[in-house]
Simulated assay, not measured.
Amino acid sequence: MKIGEAAAASGVSQRMIRHYETIGLIPRPPRLHSNYRDYAAADLHRLRFIANARDLGFATEEIAELLALWSDEGRASAEVKKLALARADALHAKARKLEAMRAVLLDLAGRCSGGERPDCPIIDELSGGA
């Protein structure tokens, strides 16, 4: 199937499919006589795997590791679990930072009158003043 069909079937954009080919996450497919890429069912499965891993927050390097583990039938599931737990820890740290940012914004917004006067603690904080 052509790249547009592969994109529609996998939920991965054509641009990202080309990118994944360039960085080696998916093998370059053979070309048809018309020079169009010819994707197979296995390519779609791999693209869906990548998309699912992306949705869970895995970085490109981690996805490459997961793909290698997926292809290795002799893999130790402990390696996969280790990657998943590391990603979960990273997401937790990011969530804590985002919540702290949210708390600061809510505090600043709560101290801002929101009226017609120019004084604003939000602007003061952003400018490093007050």
Rank of each mutant, 00 (worst) to 15 (best):
M1Q: 06
M1W: 12
I3G: 01
G4L: 00
G4R: 06
E5R: 13
A6N: 09
A8T: 15
A8W: 14
G11R: 09
V12W: 02
M16C: 05
M16F: 09
I17G: 04
E21C: 01
I23K: 08
I26M: 02
I26S: 01
P27G: 13
R28W: 08
P30N: 08
L32R: 15
S34D: 15
Y36M: 00
Y36S: 03
Y39T: 04
A41G: 04
A42G: 08
D43N: 14
D43P: 09
D43R: 02
L44I: 14
L47E: 04
A51G: 10
N52D: 15
N52Y: 13
A53I: 08
D55K: 09
L56Y: 10
L56Q: 11
G57F: 09
T60H: 05
E62C: 05
A64T: 14
A64H: 15
E65Q: 14
E73V: 00
R75E: 08
E79G: 02
E79N: 12
L83P: 14
A84L: 06
A84G: 04
A86K: 09
R87Y: 10
D89G: 10
L91N: 12
K94M: 08
K94A: 00
R96T: 13
R96E: 14
R96W: 02
E99T: 01
R102A: 06
R102L: 00
V104K: 05
L105D: 10
L108P: 03
L108G: 02
A109E: 14
C112E: 06
C112K: 03
G114K: 02
G114M: 01
R117Y: 02
D119Q: 13
I122A: 01
I122P: 10
D124S: 07
E125S: 00
A130V: 14
